[in-house]
Design a binder for these strands. Structure first.
Lengths: 172, 172
DNA sequence: GGAAAACATTTTAGGCTTAAAACAATTCGG
DNA sequence: CCGAATTGTTTTAAGCCTAAAATGTTTTCC
């Protein structure tokens, strides 16, 4: 059995380390499986939100962010938290203000900033939806033991950190 | 310590089982973490595909499906595999045929069916992109040990099965 | 054989999403 | 203090995405 066969790097004729064409099929499969899980659950949640409450998932997500911030958030905050573009938030907020779920006002101390909050209606509707939403999630993950859940949490935390590091390497 | 406090179900005054308001905060956190990981990685891959190859992620995904099917696929097949709506595929295919990456023809045995394939150009470009794409994924998951990867695969398989079961319960 | 069901795709209407450019307000450095 | 970055938001152009309805085709089953 040649010694090289288990190495991940080799020395070339100039004695400089070169990468062997590594096999990353496992990571690729892992990524696809991660994506499948998310797509599956997301689609299910989207459908249930529409059927039960006639609301879209992005609107629900935005309201969820605001529910955790009684004093409101700026559009930038929301955009960072939701990991979507600024322009996207502008449109979402527009429609939710229109429907009476959100209140939007310009900050008194910085006239660039828009602060948005849930209205009474918005908060009431969100709480109603969130309660049911939580049971859907519980059901979707029902076959995982508490230990599975903990272990997944741990591994996904590691995954998140790894991905963030990789992203930071690209644009420092 | 009351015996009920650790129970997940109680008997009410009519001796009928009722659910206690269970706490599913862990599952909820797990779902949000799963979503964060996917969004993070997806965004990174999307950006790199655009910068390096001026291609969108959905187009890349569609080509990836076709690369695995030398004899082509029907639009329905693609739609199921990619877990997106039929109408979505119609538009994607339109643009990829237009740009010369895909070939589309009506099945000879069933005139309802459209069979699509990668063109020579499409296959060549995809292979070039896929090679680089694989290194990005490897880098994004770089901090996971082989054991982590195996364990994540196992737990995500369990998650997928659980979610599919839950989805099937809703629309049998 | 022919109506009815099932199937594959497209169309429609509306909303979501992004990247990049434009605009506006604030902060920073000289 | 003032021009130059920086920051927060909106606009723009293009594409993605979905659910539902519409269209055309095949199968089923009386």
């Amino acid at each position: 059995m040649p010694a090289e066969s288990d190495c991940t790097a080799m020395l070339d004729s100039e004695t400089k380390a070169v990468e062997t064409p590594e096999d990353h099929a496992d990571e690729l499969r892992l990524w696809l499986r991660l994506l499948t899980c998310t797509t599956l659950i997301e689609g299910e949640v989207r459908g249930r939100l529409r059927q039960r409450f006639d609301v879209t998932l992005p609107r629900f997500d935005l309201m969820a962010q605001l529910d955790k911030a009684p004093d409101g958030m700026t559009l930038s905050d929301v955009s960072k938290r939701m990991m979507v573009s600024n322009g996207n938030v502008t449109g979402l907020v527009e429609r939710l203000v229109e429907s009476g779920h959100l209140d939007r006002r310009t900050s008194e101390t910085d006239r660039r900033v828009q602060v948005i909050r849930l209205t009474k209606l918005g908060r009431a509707e969100f709480r109603r939806m969130a309660a049911e939403h939580e049971t859907w999630i519980a059901d979707l993950f029902a076959d995982l033991s508490p230990k599975d859940v903990r272990e997944l949490m741990r591994l996904l935390a590691k995954t998140k950190a790894s991905a963030q590091k990789s992203a930071a390497r690209r644009r420092p």
